[in-house]
């Protein structure tokens, strides 16, 4: 069952990656109005960087891996400048009365989240397809 194991491993790595994307999108949404992060600056929008990684199998060692998984290469900050909002009464306002609010666009985060959720579902479907194929193959032994 080694080949199909590799397929399931690749899909499982994608599930973990999509979960990371959803987590980052959710934290961006949650911090859309956070003007203070632990480093003192306003929160900056974060993004997940994904990289293709071969699944660790016997085939991969031999250099003929069919299944390539995905891994989270890192979570980087968006370099777009913070939005400025005029709000003199805000405690974090500067001398001119402008507050730096995070460079988060809630609509964009929602779209990211939906796309990550759909990708998660697609990978779940792929896993259940492989599982069904294996079970069909086992039925060859019956009767």
């Amino acid at each position: 069952m080694s080949t199909l194991n590799a397929a399931i491993d690749a899909s499982a790595s994608a599930l973990a990656a999509e979960r990371a994307r959803i987590e980052v999108a959710v934290s961006n949404l949650a911090n859309a109005e956070s003007t203070r992060a632990p480093d003192g600056r306003p929160y900056r929008r974060r993004d997940v960087v994904l990289s293709a990684t071969p699944v660790e199998t016997f085939d991969a060692v031999l250099g003929r891996a069919g299944a390539i998984g995905v891994a989270v290469a890192g979570i980087v900050e968006d370099r777009a400048p913070a939005r400025q909002r005029y709000e003199p009464s805000h405690p974090d306002a500067d001398a001119e009365g402008f507050v730096s609010v995070p460079n988060v666009d809630p609509a964009e985060e929602m779209v990211d989240m939906v796309s990550a959720a759909r990708a998660y579902q697609a990978n779940l479907t792929a896993i259940s397809l492989v599982r069904d194929l294996l079970q069909r193959a086992l039925e060859l032994g019956r009767g």
Partner: peptide
Amino acid sequence: GDVHDAMIALQRADLTLQFTVQVRNK
């Protein structure tokens, strides 16, 4: 751990057991 990792491990164990049972039946 993740839910999907647990579920995949369970499925893998289930399929390996089914395969063993088939071999034993044969």
